[in-house]
Simulated scan of single mutants.
Amino acid sequence: MKNNFIAAVLAVTMTGMIACSKDDDHGERKLELMFEDNTYQLTGVAKEENGRLLVNYPRWSDIYQYAVVITNGKTGKTPYPDVATNQWSHGLSGLNKWVCVQSVYFDKAGTLWILDPAAPKLETIQGNGAKLVRMDKQSNTIARTYSFTPILADTSYVNDVRVDVERQYAYLTESKGGGIIVVNLADGQMRRVLQAHYSTISDPSYKFIIDGRELMKDGKPAKFNSDGIALTPDGNWLYYKPLSDDKLYRIKTEHLRNPGMTAMDLESQVEDLGHFTTTDGMIFDEKGNLYMGDLQGYRIVKLDSALRMTTLVKDDRLIWPDSYSIADGYLYISCSQIQKQPEYNNGVDKRTSPYTVYRIKI
C-alpha cells in the first residue's frame, strides 16, 4: 500500500477517533427491546422488511432447543421452517437439517439465507452439514444448498455471510483458521481466499480486555479470527475484520470474484483502514454508513464514508452485541453475552440477564 494512502487513512481514522470521543449521538437514540430469551443463547438476527423477525441459536452447549425461529412478541417463537428441520442429532446427515446455525440474513431482494457451520460446541463439522442455504420465499422450504464440504477442513467454522444480489455472489468469513469464502451462487463454484492472511487473523499482540480483564480461555488469551463482514451498497467493496482486535480491512469484490488472481495477487489488494473497535458483526445501510459494535465499550458506532466514527448508542444492556440487520428504518441488534460463557470464566456461567434483540432508529 502506498505511503500517501496510509497517511490519508490514518488521518481519517484519527478524525474518527476524535469524533467518537465526543459521543455526538449518545442520548439521542434509545434501545427498544424486541425479543428476549431467558434460557437459550442466540447469536444471529434477521429482520424482513415489513415482516418477520428471525433469530438463530447455535448448538454451543447442551442447553439447546431450536436452531432457527420466527419470533412472536417479546418471548414467543416458532421453529423455522418446521420442527423436523430443527431436529438433528449426532449420526444423522446434516445436509437437510440445521446442525449448529450461526447466522440468518435477508438480502436486499428479501431472500432469506441461513448459514450453518455445523460444528456443535465449536468442535468439528458433523454430518457433512456445513452449508449456506437459500430459502424459498413462497413455500418457506429449502430452495438451494451450497455445501462447504469440498473446501473446508472439519475444524473450520463459517461465521457470517453477505450476498450480492445483482452479481449473484456470496461472501463469508471463516473464523477459526481465518479466511474469506467466495461463492458463485449461479454455478455453485466456491473458493477460500486470504486464508491465515494478517487481515483475517486476530492480532496476537492485541489485549482483548472486556469487563476489566483480558478474555481468557483454557489459560490463554481468547482469539477470534475473521468474523464480521459487510458489503457496500453498490457491492464493490467487502469490509471485514478479526473479532478480537480493533483493525478494519477491505478489498474490492472484483478481485475476489476473479479466479485468475493468485493468493499473492489478492493479498496485495487488501487495504488496512486502521484502528476502530472490537466488533462481532457489522452492516452497511443504503447510504453507505457502516454500523459496528464495540464489545469493550458496550456501544454501537457508525462510520460514515470518510471513516468518521460516532457513537450511536452506549448502553449497559449491549452485552456482546453480536449480529445486525437493517429493516423498516431500524438497526436490529442481537446480544449473545459470549464473554459471560463458562469457558471464559473458569467454568462459571456469569450470565445475569436474558439474551436479547434490540432495535434502534437510524
Rank of each mutant, 00 (worst) to 15 (best):
Gly76Ile: 03
Trp113Glu: 07
Asp203Leu: 09
Pro117Val: 06
Lys74Trp: 04
Ser268Ala: 14
Gly129Tyr: 03
Ala130Ile: 02
Gly347Tyr: 12
Ile18Lys: 07
Asp154Cys: 07
Asn236Asp: 13
Gly281His: 07
Lys131Arg: 06
Asn140Gln: 09
Ala222Asp: 07
Gly94Gln: 00
Glu286Phe: 05
Pro259Lys: 06
His197Thr: 08
Trp237Pro: 01
Gln189Phe: 10
Tyr239Lys: 03
Leu266Cys: 12
Pro120His: 11
Ala170Lys: 01
Phe148Thr: 08
Val69His: 01
Ile151Leu: 08
Ile151Gly: 10
Gly219Ile: 13
Gly288Leu: 10
Val12Gly: 00
Glu174Pro: 11
Tyr249Asn: 04
Thr311Asn: 12
Thr278Ser: 12
Leu273Gln: 08
Asp116Trp: 08
Gly129Leu: 05
Thr262Ile: 10
Lys97Val: 03
Thr155Ser: 15
Thr15Cys: 06
Ile319Lys: 15
Lys241Leu: 14
Thr78Val: 15
Leu31Asp: 07
Gly260Asp: 12
Leu194Met: 02
Asp160Phe: 03
Asp136Lys: 02
Ala130Lys: 01
Tyr239Met: 05
Lys137Ser: 15
Ser205Cys: 00
Thr232Arg: 08
Lys47Tyr: 06
Arg134Pro: 03
Lys314Ile: 00
His197Asp: 15
Met14Gln: 10
Thr78Gln: 12
Ser156Asp: 14
His275Arg: 12
Leu231Ser: 00
Val9Met: 12
Ala186Pro: 00
Asp164Gln: 09
Thr311Val: 15
Leu95Ile: 11
Pro321Asp: 10
Phe276Val: 04
Ala263Pro: 04
Asp218Gln: 15
Ile63Gln: 05
Asn56Gly: 05
Val45His: 05
Gly293Asp: 13
Lys241Val: 06
Leu42Thr: 00
Met1Gln: 03
Val69Trp: 01
His90Pro: 01
